[in-house]
């Protein structure tokens, strides 16, 4: 079981626990992203440092990960808010505040590849490898960090400000290592799993826009839904949430050409 599975399980469990205590309202938003083309072969990464430790994991480029049935992993969705706008977070999320989010250097990659962080939460950066890593995060708004993490080292970091784009995470010692950190001042975000699925729960009823982003595409704006070309301006998709309702995007295909450089 991977860390992400473990993490999402814990979150899920805590959500259930929380929802039985506190009032949980709003509606859900879900869907599945699909890669519009033949699944590409994952490219092997060039391991240039600490080859003895990092070379044995068969690391591949995680910029484009296509799973079973063409499911597109690592598509990031987050609630789009204009400057100054806020959203009332459903109490179902309260329990999350106490749960740090982990971003681990493991097997010379970042686990998870995409980390979702609510500013109420702390980020725990760890190193499970036998080699040292530095974790360099440069964001648009928050101060940069670049701690050196010794083997089994761990560090808790708090980011105060919401970011309007995912921040790139890197390790200078192992230049192939890339991860993404999404920092938002609300927990209405998701990243698609290995099958391309996502679900965001307890969104307050109302008309919202979610921004859709992928590291190889940027804003995901040209997609096909039900075979029809659909344009999401700057990756923004309108989502009208009803109390107790589920907005299901269905299957959204991102054409292969969007991933070309």
């Amino acid at each position: 079981m991977t860390y992400r599975q473990l993490l999402s399980l814990t979150i899920f469990a805590s959500l259930i626990a929380a929802s039985s205590l506190a009032y949980a309202g709003g509606g859900s938003f879900k869907g599945k992203f699909v890669y519009g083309g033949d699944a590409p072969k994952a490219e092997a990464l060039k391991i240039t440092a600490d080859v003895a430790v990092c070379g044995k994991h068969g690391l591949t480029d995680e910029g484009l990960v296509v799973g079973k049935d063409g499911g597109l992993a690592n598509v990031i969705l987050f609630l789009y808010l204009k400057r100054g706008d806020t959203v009332k977070v459903d109490p179902a999320y309260d329990a999350l505040k106490e749960m740090p989010v982990t971003m681990i250097n493991e097997k010379c990659r970042f686990e998870p590849h995409v980390t979702l962080l609510w500013t109420e939460q702390k980020l725990k950066v760890g190193n499970k490898d036998s080699v040292g890593h530095n974790t360099k995060v440069n964001c648009l708004t928050n101060d940069p960090i670049n701690p050196l993490l010794p083997a089994n080292g761990e560090l808790e970091i708090k980011f105060d400000k919401s970011e309007r784009l995912p921040c790139q995470v890197g390790c200078n010692i192992h230049p192939w290592m890339t991860g993404w950190l999404v920092i938002r001042d609300n927990p209405y975000f998701a990243v698609t799993d290995a099958e391309g699925n996502f679900e965001i729960k307890n969104i307050p009823a109302g008309d919202w826009q979610f921004q859709v982003w992928h590291e190889k595409v940027g804003y995901v704006s040209d997609v096909k839904i039900g075979g029809r070309d659909t344009e999401w301006s700057r990756g923004r998709v309108d989502v009208s949430v009803k109390e107790g309702g589920v907005v299901d995007l269905g299957s959204v295909t991102v054409p292969a050409k969007e991933f070309e450089d």
């Binding site: 940069p144 010794p150 761990e154």
Partner: peptide, 22 residues
């Protein structure tokens, strides 16, 4: 503190006495 703008990271300090770090 590390050197800003460069790969030189900040030292990984011990978070608890005897834990990993400097």
């Amino acid at each position: 503190n590390g050197i800003e703008g460069t790969p030189m990271p900040a030292a990984g300090m011990q978070q608890s006495p005897g834990g990993p770090g400097l």
